[in-house]
Computed example of a mutant assay.
Amino acid sequence: MENFARLLKESWALVEGDRRRLSDYFYARAFLLDPDLRRLFPVQMAGQGDRLLDAIVTAIHTVGDPESFDEYLRALGRDHRKYHVTPESYTTMGVALLDALRSTAGDGWNLEFDQAWRDAYTAMAQKMQDGAAADGNPPFWHAEVLTHERYGSDTAVLTAQVLQHPLPYRAGQYVSVEVPRYLPRVWRTYSVANAPNDDNILEFHVRTPGAGWLSGALVRRVRPGDLLRVAAPMGAMTLDRSSERDILCVAGGVGLAPVKALVEELTSYNRTRWAHVFYGARRAVDLWALDELRELVAAYPWLSVTPACSDEPDFDGERGEISEVVTRYGPWTSHDCFVSGSAAMVRATLRALAADQVPPQHVRYDTFGDL
């Protein structure tokens, strides 16, 4: 397994710097092999390749951990039921992926790399199909938007009520969302910002830094009464209820969503574990959930919240990057740690926790973008 993982990572290094070419070649080859596959994807393919590569990178990073590898791919298979993928589709995509890797890698590709990827894709596809086959839930749920609040020009918090039987998710997980009225067949993942509840209500924090696609529609166009489609939950940034370690949560921007859900779950049972939340943003106006967090602090003595701003010198609180602020309050070696935010913020925080000698198995993270 160690040699297998090494071959995958070495070969991936040959193509990682040319992801656009890799994804363009992959989809062009797949649609040429099976033109019917095209109808499974949105009319505009911008960003679609990034999600393919995100899945590949995640799988590569977990291949050395058989349990995580299996769990991730089974969840990915359940999620892909929303596309109505067939076994034949998996075969076609495998051929296209190998062709794309060979073409992009060029002369650096060899037979060892080729066989490693054949074996890896076969295992990945089988685990995904096994996960899909074992799932008795629908491929997606319908949810009606109940509330929609804007925070500035680029952020919104919305709630939606699942209209079918409950969505079986855990606090800290994320789901794929589609807005069929505005962008059919365009799916994006968003963390659920609340713990499971009897009313089947989901909360989402959405930010769109530019024109956006689905995030732009969720921020600027969606209104109460609109219908969303929500696919199977994924992600392992969940609480271990058997752990007796105290908890550290580090959130940046909309990365607060899964952290907020974890805190809500803790309020339902926790009595003995201290929980420390560090919540960072560039400006104070971007800490839109701070008042709600402070209400929880007032109600639960085991909870503390430390806000921080990096670009507001007059902020009445901690100043600096949230990864730096967390370091000032350490050590965190005896904590279960949860990190969520932009790729840069997550990288910096993971480095800080590693320097603090936090065991890797005690750290879980969720990132908005590639690591």
Score class of each variant (00 low, 15 high):
residue 165 H to N: 13
residue 166 P to S: 11
residue 166 P to L: 12
residue 167 L to G: 03
residue 168 P to S: 13
residue 168 P to T: 08
residue 169 Y to N: 03
residue 170 R to L: 11
residue 171 A to R: 03
residue 172 G to W: 10
residue 172 G to Q: 05
residue 173 Q to H: 00
residue 173 Q to E: 01
residue 174 Y to L: 00
residue 175 V to S: 08
residue 175 V to W: 11
residue 175 V to I: 06
residue 176 S to G: 13
residue 176 S to N: 10
residue 178 E to W: 04
residue 178 E to Q: 10
residue 178 E to K: 02
residue 179 V to G: 03
residue 179 V to N: 04
residue 180 P to W: 12
residue 183 L to G: 02
residue 183 L to R: 07
residue 183 L to P: 03
residue 187 W to F: 15
residue 188 R to V: 01
residue 190 Y to M: 10
residue 192 V to F: 04
residue 192 V to Q: 03
residue 194 N to L: 05
residue 195 A to G: 08
residue 195 A to L: 06
residue 196 P to G: 08
residue 198 D to E: 15
residue 198 D to H: 12
residue 199 D to K: 10
residue 199 D to E: 15
residue 199 D to I: 05
residue 200 N to V: 13
residue 200 N to T: 09
residue 200 N to L: 12
residue 201 I to G: 06
residue 202 L to P: 02
residue 203 E to N: 02
residue 204 F to S: 06
residue 204 F to P: 04
residue 205 H to Q: 11
residue 205 H to E: 13
residue 207 R to Y: 13
residue 215 S to Q: 01
residue 216 G to V: 02
residue 217 A to T: 14
residue 220 R to N: 12
residue 221 R to N: 14
residue 221 R to E: 14
residue 222 V to T: 10
residue 226 D to C: 07
residue 228 L to R: 11
residue 228 L to H: 11
residue 229 R to D: 08
residue 229 R to G: 09
residue 229 R to F: 07
residue 231 A to Q: 15
residue 231 A to G: 14
residue 232 A to W: 03
residue 233 P to Y: 06
residue 233 P to H: 01
residue 233 P to K: 00
residue 233 P to L: 02
residue 233 P to E: 05
residue 233 P to T: 01
residue 234 M to P: 00
residue 235 G to Q: 06
residue 237 M to G: 08
residue 237 M to C: 11
residue 238 T to G: 10
residue 238 T to Q: 09
residue 239 L to Q: 01
residue 239 L to F: 01
residue 240 D to Q: 02
residue 242 S to Y: 12
residue 242 S to C: 03
residue 244 E to C: 09
residue 244 E to L: 13
residue 245 R to F: 05
residue 246 D to F: 15
residue 248 L to T: 05
residue 248 L to R: 11
residue 250 V to Y: 09
residue 250 V to M: 06
residue 250 V to D: 02
residue 250 V to H: 07
residue 251 A to H: 14
residue 251 A to G: 11
residue 251 A to C: 09
residue 252 G to M: 12
residue 253 G to P: 01
residue 254 V to M: 10
residue 255 G to T: 00
residue 259 V to M: 13
residue 259 V to P: 05
residue 261 A to C: 12
residue 261 A to D: 06
residue 262 L to F: 03
residue 263 V to P: 13
residue 264 E to K: 00
residue 264 E to G: 05
residue 264 E to Y: 07
residue 266 L to V: 00
residue 266 L to S: 11
residue 266 L to T: 03
residue 271 R to I: 01
residue 271 R to W: 08
residue 272 T to C: 10
residue 273 R to S: 12
residue 273 R to Y: 09
residue 275 A to H: 12
residue 275 A to F: 10
residue 275 A to S: 11
residue 276 H to I: 02
residue 278 F to A: 12
residue 278 F to M: 07
residue 279 Y to F: 15
residue 281 A to P: 13
residue 281 A to Q: 09
residue 283 R to I: 07
residue 286 D to P: 04
residue 286 D to C: 06
residue 287 L to P: 03
